[in-house]
Design a protein around this nucleic acid. Sequence first.
DNA 1: GTTCATGCAAATCGTTTGCACAATG
DNA 2: CATTGTGCAAACGATTTGCATGAAC
Lengths: 132, 132
Amino acid sequence: MSKKKYRQSKQRTKILEILRKTDLHPTASWIYDRLKKEFPQLSIGTVYRNLTILIDQGMIQKIENGSTFDRFDAHTNPHYHFICDVCGGIKDIDININEQIDRIITEKLPMTIKRHKIDFYGICPECERKKK
Amino acid sequence: MSKKKYRQSKQRTKILEILRKTDLHPTASWIYDRLKKEFPQLSIGTVYRNLTILIDQGMIQKIENGSTFDRFDAHTNPHYHFICDVCGGIKDIDININEQIDRIITEKLPMTIKRHKIDFYGICPECERKKK
DNA sequence: GTTCATGCAAATCGTTTGCACAATG
DNA sequence: CATTGTGCAAACGATTTGCATGAAC
């Protein structure tokens, strides 16, 4: 999150708008496909460059999700994720972040904990329904 | 974790041995460099193929660590990880896994939680010392 | 002897980058 | 008009794969 000055760009504005309108935690290429309709010349490099800038601005965050590709999220307040074992979809988990956990661990162990990340795994309601 | 039958291979045996002897959570190429001394003909493809087999056998697990490369761990009982913001090193966190967490979340939310993963972030004692 | 594992090299995939041109401030 | 952002294509780095040969059973 730097204070670097960036110019405005139509592509970047739109990328942020798209990210804010979805809770799908999209990949770069999903965003690219979306935006391609509006900017037929768009290149995937531009999408990546803008995602990097938006992260630097603190507007979005990158989610590490154990896949080979990154996902992005405009929901930047701390929250946990649920990842479906069947469809791979990611959902936000709306429970309080327990900041005590960091303190407890720091007391017990020789390292200073600044933050933590919890990912829950299981089967989402949609996939659960399809199984029957 | 399938029941597929695999033949024995010297390379695979040694890869598992190396993984069991370290707590560094190595990358594929670290293992490759190590093993190259003993098997000068070794190819990185063989390392990857064997790591995949060992995962399938449940002997090791892959750690997603937010980097561009995977790390591997022969320590397969459930445990948490600590990732140093400075050096990127991964350490095992030796506290009890709270299985209640999964149950509590499952009760509150529409999805069935089977397991969870917690990664703690901060600065490891070694890097903390170097800062001064 | 049939099948699986290996080494080698080429292919793949997501992401990054160098470059010349266009858009921003 | 100086600088940043863009499209394009090439480069990149980690991982995977096709193929002919070698090892396991």
